Simulated assay, not measured.
Amino acid sequence: MNKIIIGSREWCSLPDLGIELIKAKVDSGAKTTALHADNLTKFIKNDENWVQFSLHPLKSRPDLIVQCEAKLVEKRIIKSSNGNKEERFVIETKLILGNSSYPIEITLTNRKLMGFHMLLGRQAMSNKVLIDCEFRYLLGKPSL
Rank of each mutant, 00 (worst) to 15 (best):
N2M: 13
K3R: 15
I4S: 11
I4M: 12
I4V: 15
I6V: 04
R9G: 04
R9M: 08
W11C: 05
S13Q: 03
S13P: 00
D16K: 09
D16A: 10
D16M: 13
L17I: 07
L17C: 02
L21G: 00
L21Y: 00
I22D: 00
I22L: 09
V26M: 02
D27C: 06
A30T: 00
T32G: 01
A34M: 02
L35W: 02
L35C: 09
H36T: 03
H36P: 13
L40C: 07
D47Y: 14
E48N: 14
N49L: 09
Q52A: 11
S54H: 08
L55H: 07
H56Y: 07
H56P: 02
L58Q: 13
R61F: 13
D63F: 13
L64K: 13
I65Y: 04
V66R: 02
C68S: 06
A70Y: 05
A70F: 06
V73E: 09
K75A: 08
S81Y: 04
G83L: 10
K85P: 01
E86M: 04
E92A: 04
L97F: 10
S100L: 15
S101D: 07
I104R: 02
E105W: 07
T107V: 10
T107A: 09
T107M: 09
L108P: 04
L108C: 10
R111E: 07
K112R: 12
L113K: 13
G115L: 13
F116V: 09
F116K: 06
M118R: 07
M118Y: 05
L120H: 00
L120R: 01
Q123E: 15
V129N: 01
V129G: 00
I131Q: 02
D132L: 10
E134T: 14
Y137D: 12
G140E: 04
K141T: 12
P142V: 06
